[in-house]
Design a protein around this nucleic acid. Structure first.
Lengths: 129, 129
DNA sequence: TGTGGGGCTTCCCATTATGGGAAGGTCAAG
DNA sequence: CTTGACCTTCCCATAATGGGAAGCCCCACA
């Protein structure tokens, strides 16, 4: 099947499929006319990638997960470690953002928010600290 | 003062100061020898930028905040709106990440994590859904 | 058989914010 | 005068995605 069909079936844009091929995540078989050719297993791979990306796994992790996925002798511990490391990264970033949001919310609470210039938010950003 | 000094005083790398100048966030005065020249107020501006970036304000927001900071007739409501919009964005992303982390944690909990191949994490990523 | 439209190809550029590194000019101290 | 630290600009890289152009290909329809 052509790339457009694979894109529709997998939910990944043709643009991205080409990109993933460049990164070596999906096969790059070609027909005589130069068109890329895909089969059901390629679509399955693309869907796997889509699901992994939906969980925000970086493509480097996706590469490792694909390798483990295709390895009949894999140890589930390897998958688990990649996943838990990623969870830790996600939670770290989420907490950092939540902390910034809280700081700002606190500042905004003390900002009258009318047409006068006084503003603790700007005061805070101005601080020499 | 030279860019290196301003970098030390502001906590922003020389590289980034040049970048901010290119974006029009800081002044670009030059000495006769072509060196950039900074004063105390420039350092204050750079510090303002650093504090805003520490709260993850995108540079476009920083540009607006700098304009408001320098406007004696600003309305604090304008600052407040920028801040609260940013808070909403931060919280949205944080929640999305937290949700992904929770899903993954749930999957990992049911993954024995030994040297056997069975792995609900990969099963989930493989799903046709 | 010719043609039009849609799909495919590659290549370049943009995003957001940051940094590395090279090649070359400048300044100050020894 | 030399040396080393500093400055300049320019190019490249990161992560993931997308837009768009130029050009080739294929099928269906008149």
């Amino acid at each position: 099947m052509n790339i457009g069909t694979a894109a529709r079936l997998s939910g990944i844009s043709a643009k991205m499929i080409r990109h993933y091929e460049e990164l070596g995540l999906v096969a790059g078989r070609r027909l005589l006319n130069g068109y890329r050719d895909y089969g059901e297993s390629d679509v399955a791979t693309l869907r796997f990638i889509r699901h992994a990306r939906a969980l925000a796994f970086p493509l480097e992790d996706v590469r490792k997960l694909l390798a483990l996925w295709g390895d009949r002798n894999r140890a589930s511990a390897d998958v688990r470690r990649i996943a838990l490391d990623h969870v830790a990264a996600l939670e770290g970033k989420a907490q950092a953002m939540q902390a910034m949001a809280s700081s700002l919310r606190h500042l905004a609470k003390h900002c009258c928010g009318d047409d006068r210039p006084d503003c603790p938010i700007l005061d805070e950003l101005e601080k020499t600290l």
